Simulated scan of single mutants.
Amino acid sequence: MPYPKGHKIKVRNKIVESAAQAFRTNGIQDVSVPFIMKGAGLTHGGFYSHFNNKEQLVAEACRYAISDTIALLQKVADEENHPPPIHTVIDYYLSPYHRDNTEMGCILPALSGEISRSSEEVRQVYTHELERMIAFISNLAEIDASKGSALFSTMVGSLTLARSVNDPELSATLLSSGKQYAKELVKTLT
């Protein structure tokens, strides 16, 4: 009996979601195809009927994860009643919750260290997705892309460092300082 219409797309989407979650948490190199397929509830034998290689999956996972993050940040911005919405996004992005829940967090800080050693295809997709995120932040803050790059770099750097240290107080300070500086930066840039 053939699979129902759309089955292959649903399975592919499950694999991409599993990969995005795994890459957000563990990076690219420490995640195997069998691990991703197991996370999707599938056997690894079916991987190559959906993707040519792991690099193609990394690229798709980056696209998916950025779309997911932008949708989440837009929802956060829309739920708050106090202006400006960029402050709400900064508060969320540099929160202990976002720091601690890497599996659903922004993929950009999670992969930044590895991307420079990835294929040109992956680097191209990562670059495009970073530009999309900067455009989102810039539009939300009502600033140009150059200023949005500075703002988002501050946010990513603060989050990356807060996730990297093993001292909870230092991590909290990095988040708090990053929030304060990012909000001050918004004021000076607008």
Rank of each mutant, 00 (worst) to 15 (best):
K14P: 02
I15P: 02
V16W: 04
E17A: 13
S18F: 09
Q21Y: 03
Q21T: 15
Q21G: 00
A22F: 02
F23Q: 09
F23C: 13
R24H: 03
T25P: 01
T25G: 00
N26W: 05
G27M: 06
G27C: 11
I28R: 09
I28D: 03
I28T: 10
Q29T: 10
V31W: 05
S32F: 07
P34G: 14
P34A: 13
F35E: 15
I36T: 03
I36Q: 11
M37Y: 05
K38Y: 04
K38Q: 13
L42R: 12
T43G: 15
H44R: 11
H50C: 08
H50R: 10
F51K: 12
N53F: 11
E55W: 04
E55M: 11
A59W: 07
E60T: 03
Y64K: 15
S67R: 15
D68I: 00
D68G: 00
I70E: 05
L72D: 12
L73H: 13
A77F: 08
D78E: 15
E79G: 05
E79Q: 06
E80N: 13
E80C: 08
H82T: 14
I86S: 03
I86N: 01
I86F: 10
V89R: 00
V89T: 08
I90Y: 00
D91P: 07
Y93W: 06
P96C: 01
P96S: 09
P96G: 02
P96Q: 12
Y97E: 08
Y97Q: 03
Y97C: 00
H98M: 09
N101D: 11
E103T: 08
M104A: 03
C106G: 03
I107H: 04
L108P: 06
L108Q: 10
L111C: 00
L111E: 04
S112Y: 00
G113P: 01
E114I: 05
I115K: 02
I115S: 01
I115P: 01
R117V: 02
S118I: 08
S119W: 08
S119E: 04
E120M: 08
V122E: 06
V122Q: 04
V122S: 06
R123L: 01
R123W: 04
H128I: 07
E129R: 05
E129K: 08
L130V: 13
E131T: 07
A135P: 01
I137C: 10
S138E: 09
N139W: 02
L140G: 03
E142W: 05
E142Y: 08
I143R: 06
A145L: 07
K147D: 14
S149G: 15
S149C: 06
S149N: 14
